[in-house]
C-alpha cells in the first residue's frame, strides 16, 4: 500500500511538470490559436536561467594560502564566491538557495523572451495553417537549442537542492504510520506544491482579474471583444509572455531533479503535446487534469510488478492512454466542441 502511495506521489510530481508545460501550451493555443512547438524550448530556457543565476552567484575570488599545499605541491588556491566574500554567511545562504531564487530571474527574462518571440515571429503566422505553425515553431526550438548549446555546451549542469530542503519528509508519520514507512524527498514535495501554486495562480489570474476576464472573452470570441474597442492582440501578446514565464519557472525549479541540457525541452515537449490532446485542445483544466493523470499512470506503469508482467510498458503507457482516450472521447477529457474541428 505504501508502495502505491509513493508511486502516486512520484506520479503527481512528474505530472506537475507535464501540467505546467501543457498549461502554457494550452494558453497559447487557446488565445492565439498557435500550435507552439517551441514551448519545450522555453522550459529549457527557464532551466538555464537557474544555471545562469547560480553561475553569477558563484563567480569566485581566488586567493592563495601559502600555509597549505595542493596535491601537486604548489600553494593551495582558496576559492570563495564573491557574494560570500561580500555578505558573509548571508552570501552563502543565497548561493545555497540559488535554485528557488532563480525564479526571480526566470519570470522577467522568460516573459520578455516570450513577448519578443510572439512579436518577432509568431504573429506573422497567425493566419497560416497549423502545419506551417508547427514547422516554424519546431525550427525555432531547434535554433534555441543550438544557441544554448553554443554558449553552455552540450553537457548537463547539475543544480543543488538547498541544504535545508534536502532529505526526506516522513509522510507516513503524519498519518500515524511507523517512522520511515513512507518517506518522500522534501524537494519533490516542494516542486509539487510550487506547481500547484503556479497553476492556482494562473487560474486565479484568468478568473478574478479584469485582464483575465478580457482574455477569456477573447478566447471565446476574439472579434466580438475587438468590436468593444479592446486591443485584444496586445493582451494576447502578454498572455504569450505569461505562458513563457510559466514554462520558465517550471524549468528552473525542475533543475535539481533533472540536470538541464540544451535538449531537455524536446523530451518534455512530446509528452506535453500528448497531455494537451488528452486533456482537450484549448482546455486549461483539461491540460492540468491530463498532466497529473498521465504522470500518475506513467509512475504506476514503472512499478517492478507491472513491468515484470508487461516489459517496457512504462515507455509506452502514455501513448496507449492517449489512443484509448481519443477513441472514447475524440475531443479529449475536457475538450470543447468546435476547437480544432473544421
Amino acid at each position: 500500500m505504501t508502495a502505491l502511495f509513493a508511486q502516486l506521489l512520484n506520479g503527481l510530481d512528474k505530472g506537475a511538470a507535464y501540467a505546467l508545460i501543457a498549461l502554457g501550451l494550452t494558453l497559447v493555443f487557446g488565445t492565439l490559436g498557435v500550435v507552439n512547438f517551441a514551448h519545450g524550448a522555453l522550459f529549457m530556457l527557464g532551466a538555464f536561467c537557474a544555471v545562469t543565476f547560480r553561475y553569477l552567484l558563484t563567480i569566485e575570488v581566488v586567493t592563495t594560502d601559502p600555509t597549505q599545499l595542493s596535491p601537486w605541491g604548489q600553494p593551495l588556491q582558496v576559492r570563495t564566491p564573491i557574494i560570500q566574500d561580500w555578505l558573509g554567511d548571508w552570501g552563502a545562504v543565497i548561493v545555497d538557495y540559488s535554485v528557488p531564487l532563480s525564479v526571480l530571474l526566470a519570470i522577467p527574462v522568460m516573459a520578455a523572451i516570450g513577448i519578443a518571440m510572439e512579436r518577432g515571429l509568431i504573429r506573422h503566422f497567425y493566419k497560416r495553417t497549423h502545419a506551417e505553425q508547427i514547422l516554424v515553431t519546431f525550427g525555432l526550438a531547434i535554433v534555441i537549442g543550438e544557441v544554448v548549446k553554443t554558449f553552455y555546451g552540450p553537457n548537463p549542469y547539475p543544480q543543488p537542492i538547498p541544504s535545508d530542503l534536502r532529505g526526506t519528509a516522513d509522510i507516513g508519520a503524519w498519518f500515524g504510520l511507523a517512522p520511515h514507512i513512507l518517506t518522500y524527498p522534501i524537494w519533490r514535495l516542494v516542486y509539487l506544491l510550487f506547481s500547484l501554486g503556479v497553476i492556482g495562480g494562473v487560474f486565479a489570474f484568468l478568473r478574478f482579474t479584469t485582464f483575465g476576464m478580457v482574455v477569456r472573452a477573447g478566447m471565446a470570441d476574439r472579434e466580438a471583444v475587438g468590436f468593444l474597442g479592446i486591443d485584444i492582440d496586445r493582451r494576447f501578446t502578454i498572455v504569450f509572455g505569461l505562458a513563457a514565464a510559466v514554462a520558465g519557472v517550471a524549468g528552473a525549479m525542475y533543475t535539481p531533479l533533472l540536470p538541464p541540457n540544451y535538449n531537455m525541452g524536446m523530451d518534455f515537449l512530446v509528452i506535453s503535446f500528448v497531455v494537451v490532446v488528452v486533456g482537450g485542445m484549448g482546455s486549461l483544466p483539461g491540460a492540468v487534469l491530463a498532466g497529473f493523470l498521465l504522470g500518475i499512470l506513467q509512475s504506476f506503469a514503472s512499478m517492478t510488478e507491472v513491468k515484470t508482467l508487461i516489459p517496457g510498458i512504462d515507455q509506452v503507457i502514455i501513448y496507449l492512454a492517449a489512443v484509448a482516450v481519443l477513441l472514447l472521447r475524440p475531443r479529449g477529457l475536457l475538450g470543447r466542441r468546435g476547437v480544432m474541428e473544421s
Partner: peptide, 21 residues
C-alpha cells in the same frame, strides 16, 4: 531484484521508489 535503467537517464525516481518496499 536486478533492474535495468536506460543509459543517460536523469530522473531515477520511478526506479528508486520500488526499492523502498
Amino acid at each position: 531484484a536486478t533492474i535495468r535503467t536506460p543509459l543517460g537517464l536523469g530522473d531515477y525516481s520511478q526506479y528508486l521508489t520500488p526499492v523502498l518496499n
